[in-house]
Amino acid sequence: MSRNLVLSLSPHDKGGENVQKIMWGVVIALSPALLASFYYFGWNAMRVVLLGMVFCMGTEYLVQTFMIKQKSTFMDGSAAVTGLLLSFNVPASIPWWQLLVGSVVAIGIAKMAFGGLGKNPFNPALVGRAFMLASFPVHMTSWPKPLENAWSFGVDAVTAATPLGKLSEGGVAALPELGSLDLYKDLLLGRVGGCIGETAAIAILIGGVYMLFRGIITWHIPLIYLASLAATTGIFWMLDPGKYADPLFHVLAGGAMLGAWFMATDMVTSPMTSGGQVIFALGGGVICGLIRLFGAYPEGCSYSILIMNAFVPLIDRAFPPRRFGREVKHG
């Protein structure tokens, strides 16, 4: 015998999945939305997305290297996903330093302070966004108009209100095109004002289907979240179509698609069993609908997910998986 044999407990075989593959898989799934954002918002989008990723990964590297003093795992893809999602959730015209603040909050406070990967109770990108929205309300709510001046430098962006913003300000009257096919087409393709990555519903959908196909997520959270949002808004629409917008509009507008497919499905901050995921998504959809209909903010998607994040430990306890041989009668 010429070498030391390795001994370990079973199993001795290992599946091919790992954290890196999952996280970079999410990045790949986000790329259609990324391309759409380049198309609509041009250099600015590219600038924000790159900065967001660099800031987030940089923060992770610095915190791990100099504060926790451990080998940095900033390349495992999770910080990249946070960076991407954070920049997807801000307007293309955001100043770089505000994005830096958001990234530091997202990675430094929402993630690393809780113990790093897998330990954070709240979605880091959403915490970063919520912090930015509270700190820089003006910049966070002035939206460049898509396709205008996208590929020119230094021109002040023309601002456009988001459909949800108009709805919140002036009610259904402010959105006369409601109910016309063009509006839904615009929403689907992303020809509306809004955050960088959230506007083109179709691009997000492609990414979501890719994740379903790869087995990164299951259908429960996104579909039930959107269904529950549609149901909540739909009830009020049926009661008074003159006052409330229709459910299809709500599903396609704002960050609902991005939230349902990419933020609510974040595995770290969502429940682990399918039963729990259903409850999580139901609650999220209802809260999002209620904020949009009656809240002070025009958009409630990110808050709805953050609120449900807080319930995840409870949901995990309340909905354990069905145990084999536990609920059968024996005699």
Binding site: N4, L7, S8
Partner: peptide, 16 residues
């Protein structure tokens, strides 16, 4: 003469 590959726990290695 051998190499243990597993969690850093004597109790676990002892069982192996």
């Amino acid at each position: 003469k051998l190499e243990y590959d597993g969690p850093e726990r004597c109790s676990i290695a002892h069982s192996l």
